[in-house]
Design a protein around this nucleic acid. Structure first.
Lengths: 109, 109
DNA sequence: CGGTATCCCTCCCGATACTG
DNA sequence: CAGTATCGGGAGGGATACCG
């Protein structure tokens, strides 16, 4: 019996996905954008319990650089910035739904 | 337009799932057990790149307390301990597969 | 209102050693 | 071989202030 991995071929794809969604806040942000569509920064912040200004900024930046979310800035005063899932981000929604489903089935106990 | 969450009802199930799989190593461990079945501690460690003895121990303990994995200790010298997914843990496998699939589709830039 | 910079401290985690 | 305890460094991230 081999000790090597043989589940779905290379482990790299899994690692890649992991690198995208790892971190304390990433999945929560994706989840909220999946729920709420296009949202302003402040609204996002209000809905993520305990996150700080700095953290939210940095996480949004990382997700944007991975093309998971899009950022639209309106050149006005006061500033207004809206975030939304990209197509790539949308493709993660089934995963989020799976997580919700799993949570519903197992949280009691 | 409400600013509240409305995707799949309460957000609690999602949070619960998140609390189970969050952390740098949890998903990787689940992934490996899904791939390899019943595995000894040392084999697990060999296959998780960069994890330390201490970290692996603590993560396994947490997963065990959440009933995601089972731990079987053989009373012998030298000690032998085998880990495997519980039924609850098995139910996370579709999620892991989804992550692999997603990674395969999007890793190339 | 949203982003960035700075300071500073907490606590995570790695290294090491010892036990069964 | 597997688990636990201890210690210490350093990255992560909180608070705050200022800029656009």
């Amino acid at each position: 019996m081999s000790e090597k991995i043989c589940f779905v071929g290379s482990k790299e794809p899994f690692e890649y996905t992991l690198s995208i969604i790892s971190g304390k806040w990433k999945l929560k942000i994706i989840y909220l954008l999946a729920c709420m569509g296009t949202v302003r920064y402040g609204v996002l912040k209000k809905n993520i319990d305990g996150i700080t200004h700095k953290m939210l900024s940095s996480q949004l930046k990382e997700l944007e650089s991975e093309k998971i979310i899009s950022r639209k800035e309106y050149p006005q005063v006061p500033p207004k910035v809206e975030y939304a899932l990209t197509e790539k981000g949308q493709s993660l929604v089934p995963l989020v739904i799976s997580m919700c489903d799993w949570g519903e089935m197992h949280r009691t106990g």
